[in-house]
Amino acid sequence: MKELLLIAIGSAIVNNVVLSQFLGICPFLGVSKKTETAAGMGGAVVFVITIASFVTALIYKFILANEYLLRKGIDLTYLQTIVFILVIAALVQFVEMFLKKSMPSLYQSLGVYLPLITTNCAVLGVALTNVTKEYNILESVVNGLATAVGFLIAIVLMAGLREKIEYNDIPKPFQGTAIVLVTACLMSIAFMGFSGMI
């Protein structure tokens, strides 16, 4: 239990996926203009990363690093990058179709963001981190969920700040993306304060 909590706090806050690992910068910059859309994107990312880390952990444990195959001398783990990216791409399509059919209300709020996530490097990044850190399936899911919650926190905070920045008088060259990056820099400094926690 203690390990799971440490993993969760570590990936959600201390090593925040956007602010200290630089994964998922694209949606962080692109979909953070309004708090509602940012929260929608964050929700979709939580949904997809949690499922994706569960599925990739299953595939890694039972197919790529299958004990029977390993004993026979067949090591398939080198296929992880190829398998993970394809599984994630297919999974996002599948989740989209499933939501459309069976949960139309959830699809209404998350649907538009789902395809954007396929190319989100955070999803692949989490799946690969789970393998490098040798997490078991439960730890992988917790790590995935926590990482995605970290993304949600970062993107919603950023959207809130950006709504305020709209009214400020910013030097011409810094208008647009540049001031967002400066804000991200300050947020990143703030999040560094958590680094003594674990």
């Binding site: 060259p173 810094f174 560094m192």
Partner: peptide
């Protein structure tokens, strides 16, 4: 990490 954001921000501004 924060330095990366700051440098990129300045780069974007200079390029503007």
């Amino acid at each position: 990490a924060p330095g990366a954001f700051l440098v990129l921000a300045c780069l974007v501004a200079v390029m503007n």
